[in-house]
């Protein structure tokens, strides 16, 4: 399944005005391929990724809404759960920081994904171990995140994102905390796994130096897609 973003616009209230984070972005990522989304900080890359992940659910002010607004709150909560189900079933997300759960071992980080889908946590243990093997941390399966290096944590996060066989893989700045060599390895890993799993991968980064394995690249500036800036 391809990932298609069609005329995406995302705006936030900003004082008396409106801050447009993403403006009229149309983008398609074919299945089995990886597209790099480049741009400087504040360009709107993570915002676009958030829209692709569909986690924009209940508005913040719903929490303090008066009693009369209970209907809208409930609707917002249902919408949030629908978005959560979509992420659970079809989308794999790799955050900028690995965001592993401190109380879980490496293997349990992956088994959690099965549990979120209502399956027994150990039901896909072989699949989890195979993924850990694919990302090169199978020998750390019984360790907790605090005992892993930054690169190992990011690899575990990638394996976790792939645990439920996603059709779309969203990867947000996976190399920001890694040195160049490990950054390249992680990007290669994402590209290879997206191809093997036939997933459409959108990779956000501002570090072009790690993107040799990625063929397709788009640039974002001030919330809009732009031509690639000329090399200096």
């Amino acid at each position: 399944m391809d990932l298609t973003l069609d005329r995406i616009r995302l705006a936030y209230p900003d004082g008396d005005g409106v801050l447009v984070a993403v403006d009229d972005v149309t983008l398609t990522v074919p299945s089995g391929t990886t597209t790099a989304l480049l741009g400087p900080s504040g360009a709107g890359k993570s915002s676009l990724l958030a829209v692709a992940g569909a986690p924009l659910d209940a508005p913040d002010d719903a929490a303090g809404a008066p009693r009369a607004a209970r209907g809208p709150r409930r609707r917002a909560r249902r919408a949030a759960d629908r978005a959560a189900a979509l992420r659970r079933e079809r989308i794999g997300i790799v955050f900028q920081q690995p965001q592993l759960v401190a109380s879980l071992t490496v293997l349990e980080q992956l088994e959690l994904m099965s549990h979120l889908r209502g399956r027994p946590a150990a039901s896909r243990r072989a699949h989890a171990l195979a993924l850990l093997d694919a990302v090169g941390v199978a020998d750390r399966a019984d360790r907790r995140p605090e005992h892993l290096s930054g690169g190992q944590r990011q690899r575990v996060a990638i394996a976790r994102a792939l645990m439920n066989d996603p059709q779309v893989l969203l990867v947000d700045e996976p190399t920001s905390a890694l040195d160049h060599e490990r950054g390249v390895q992680v990007v290669e890993l994402v590209v290879r796994l997206a191809r093997e799993l036939d997933a459409a991968a959108l990779l956000v980064t501002h570090d072009e130096a790690t993107l040799d394995p990625v063929a397709a690249r788009v640039h974002l500036a001030d919330g809009r897609l732009v031509e690639a800036p000329a090399a200096v």
């Binding site: 992420r87 659970r88 955050f95 759960v101 979120l116």
Partner: peptide, 16 residues
């Protein structure tokens, strides 16, 4: 709250 945010982003339902 950080872990919960991650779980929600990974697809955990409110009921879960």
């Amino acid at each position: 709250a950080g872990d919960v945010a991650v779980l929600r982003a990974l697809g955990a339902s409110t009921r879960y």
